[in-house]
């Protein structure tokens, strides 16, 4: 049943598959993010309470969502790497961590810049903000562990274990605004009742979220392709891919 999946444990097959996806992912990301952000910045009406400052939401919310989504993806890759010892999954950890770290940084930064005019402070040690900061440290820790060992597989294993342990932080971030008193407002769209946002704001936000989904996927794809090439550099297919003739056959 899962046999179709087996070739993708090999670097070259995954590299080619990702190469076929990359133009679509980056094209959709570029279009949707542009439409979502331009709509949100210039065409959405101002908020009745927050004025024009709320426009930061069109970056802040998607970045925060996929900072957690990317971590979940990384943890799944870590599980696959640890249980089935699939090297492509190990490399996926190294590909996802920097992307997730940048998304987390963007979420934290835009949050701070939004918090200053609305809450009167750049930073507050409250549950939502602190747990998101811990997410950034987890990403950095995973990356540091991945590259900390002379033996790449040892590093990948250590990074995978930290990824798995750290995944407990993801639901903590999501539910922090319910479990603790927080300056941070509650969920706007990811709740079961009707979203508390008018469609003139909700539609560009949803477009931006879709755009960030493809952006995250495209960034991870780019980095995973690099990681596969790096790990398989001595193989003829990788050298040919990088524009060099391999000499394995020459005797």
């Amino acid at each position: 049943m899962w046999k179709w999946l087996h070739p993708y444990a090999k670097g070259e097959a995954t590299f080619r598959l990702l190469g076929a996806w990359l133009p679509w992912l980056s094209g959709l990301a570029l279009i949707l993010v542009s439409v979502g952000l331009v709509w949100g910045l210039f065409y959405a009406p101002p908020d009745y309470q927050q004025g024009d400052s709320y426009r930061i939401i069109f970056i802040h919310v998607p970045a925060a969502m996929f900072s957690m989504g990317a971590y979940t993806g990384m943890a799944i890759a870590a599980l696959i790497a640890l249980v089935w010892q699939i090297r492509t999954a190990e490399w996926a950890i190294a590909a996802i961590a920097p992307v997730g770290a940048v998304l987390t940084f963007v979420a934290l930064f835009t949050g701070a810049v939004w918090g200053k005019p609305m809450w009167g402070t750049w930073w507050e040690w409250d549950a939502r903000l602190t747990s998101e900061l811990i997410l950034l440290f987890l990403y950095i820790g995973v990356l540091a562990l991945y590259y900390a060992f002379n033996d790449a597989r040892t590093g990948a294993k250590a990074a995978a274990i930290l990824s798995l342990v750290g995944v407990v932080n993801v639901p903590i971030i999501h539910f922090s605004v319910y479990w603790w008193n927080s300056l941070h407002q509650g969920a706007t769209i990811t709740k079961f009742s009707k979203p508390s946002m008018p469609p003139e704001m909700l539609i560009p936000l949803l477009i931006s979220i879709a755009g960030f989904l493809f952006l995250t996927a495209a960034l991870i794809t780019q980095r995973l392709r690099n990681e596969i090439l790096k790990q398989e550099l001595h193989r003829p297919w990788a050298m040919q891919q990088l524009g060099v003739e391999a000499n394995n056959g020459v005797q």
């Binding site: 024009d52 400052s53 426009r55 930061i56 940084f105 963007v106 810049v113 200053k116």
Partner: peptide, 20 residues
């Protein structure tokens, strides 16, 4: 000017686009 919030809005958009 963004209703007085221009600095915050443009700073967050600028830094985010730069980071990505």
């Amino acid at each position: 000017w963004m209703d007085g919030y221009g600095f915050y809005v443009w700073l967050s958009f600028g830094v985010s686009i730069l980071a990505v």
